[in-house]
Amino acid sequence: MSTITIHMKFFGGFRKFGESLDFSVPIGSTVVAIKATLQEKLNGDKLVLDSVLANDRNILRDSDILSSDTELSILPPVCGG
């Protein structure tokens, strides 16, 4: 099975895991599948469930599909101001 590499950047409550994490997923994975893989890599951390994935310009929908190596960010619930 062909895979792609996800470079996942961490923010807020995910900083406890470092700056970022690289991992592989099958080519054509959906965002929701990538979140599930990430949650496994982060020891089942439930914060993943309330978080979204984004590229540098947009928040991705759960149904979006990734077909090439990608840099993403996982964004936990926000609380600026």
């Binding site: 807020g12 409550g13 900083r15 309330d50 978080s51 979204v52 947009n58 928040i59 929908r61 964004l75 936990p76 619930p77 926000v78 609380c79």
Partner: peptide, 12 residues
């Protein structure tokens, strides 16, 4: 402690 907040899940 990182504070909880508003989820961005429905933002789009």
């Amino acid at each position: 402690e990182w504070l909880s907040g508003h989820s961005l899940q429905s933002q789009a």
